[in-house]
Design a binder for these strands. Sequence first.
DNA 1: CGGAACTTTGAGTCACTTCAATCGGTGTGG
DNA 2: CCACACCGATTGAAGTGACTCAAAGTTCCG
Lengths: 257, 257
Amino acid sequence: MLTRLHDPIELLRHKMEGVAELTNAERKALAALPIRVVALAADQDIVRQADKSLQSCLLMQGLACSSKVVGDGRRQIVAFHLPGDLPDLMSLHVGTVDTTVMTMTPAKVGVILHEHLRELFANHRLATAFWRSLVADAAVAREWTVNLGRRDGPSRTAHLLSELIARMRDIGAVNGDSFDLPITQEELGDALGMSTVHVNRCLQSLRRKGLISWVGATLSILDRSSLAEAGDFNDEYLNLSRSAAPVGAVWEQRRLH
Amino acid sequence: MLTRLHDPIELLRHKMEGVAELTNAERKALAALPIRVVALAADQDIVRQADKSLQSCLLMQGLACSSKVVGDGRRQIVAFHLPGDLPDLMSLHVGTVDTTVMTMTPAKVGVILHEHLRELFANHRLATAFWRSLVADAAVAREWTVNLGRRDGPSRTAHLLSELIARMRDIGAVNGDSFDLPITQEELGDALGMSTVHVNRCLQSLRRKGLISWVGATLSILDRSSLAEAGDFNDEYLNLSRSAAPVGAVWEQRRLH
DNA sequence: CGGAACTTTGAGTCACTTCAATCGGTGTGG
DNA sequence: CCACACCGATTGAAGTGACTCAAAGTTCCG
């Protein structure tokens, strides 16, 4: 599966089928989308905060992140982007991004002009699929807020790693319970809002408990359910869009009656 | 202005004109939207996490918040909702919400059926306006993540209060530099990811520096620019959609050339 | 082989938490 | 009209999680 997903169109199709059912006509429309593939080194800006943008990009290979820098120069990563993600899709509607999107590893991105996306959205169902992907990203962002606000170091770390393996699994990037995570503890700290030293100690604590092993760039989850428990992790928020495809159930008019 | 905005349609129109230019036809379409107004007491759930939903609501009066509860029972507020906000607009596209939305004060909400919104979205420009409002909310959420991850107590508090007065000003709810903020320090702590005690001390520190005064339910910003500086606050992220209305400028093909 | 980048460790300090008590205002029943 | 209860704000004191600083150990790579 992973090999097939090196093709930008297939990747995009897989992403959209994750949140909505597509007809053959819609798949064809997606396939007709002009995408220019660009290879980037690690630590390259893709879009910078406040840039005007007439295009959005599809991450195809590698890892990327969105971050903001605060007054004292430290940065906070607000999202990790995996292959298949559209890190700056929001610029389609507001023409700018409020974060800096950069690669964390060598990467390939597919550049899609907004005008082509807009043409695609003549089909409402496709527009909805993209809309859902934006909503799904927002759900992840809210969970990060919870993570930073209410969980201590070890738990916060466990939660983030649980999120990552879940998302990696969705795109078929997990072998057994291991996946490639070629990022530094400093970057992890920027995402967790913690110092590098403390990240290191939290990871050790997870290792000592036999929950994970992280050698080189390979992270292995040794005990997925215990890790989830340690991180107070529940994957529902990752699957909102998926379960939503058929909106059927009657809404119980509890309070707003 | 505030009085006029007690009408749900006017409130919605004001919201949407904040992010996009509307034609008279579009204003008329908005005005035709069936909205059922419901009055709620304080601390009532509007939508609960994981509820299936066939409608979204427009907050008309009062304050509301979205929150999630973590394993040990503490909660994290992930967003404050002001009059004019659509706290659960995302349920339009995924059929669920991942947070619990509840009132913090007595409130009025306008209930709008998803089917009516979808009809409205036959007009692409109106759909875009709603889309932008969702993107704007996501930008605020990302800034909260930064705030929780990288700013200490006093600064974090100053930042949130700066955000609140800026958003209150947008809806005309600010008199001079004062506005009604009828929430407890505990609620503020749930938003800031801090204990009540520490919120109290951070507020005192801001008071001692002459930046704010908070008596009863009235918060006054005594020195707006110093408060912004103390909170490392820059309102750009709140105005993304506004500045975006005409997407004109040519995007400089810096790195993705 | 040497150097740079990253990880790991230790020690001291500080921000923030928790627990506990007090204070003040507000509403309520007697 | 007062006594009481309740809720929220405030204060103090002790404990702890996380940070900073600094150094040493590792891995990677040219």
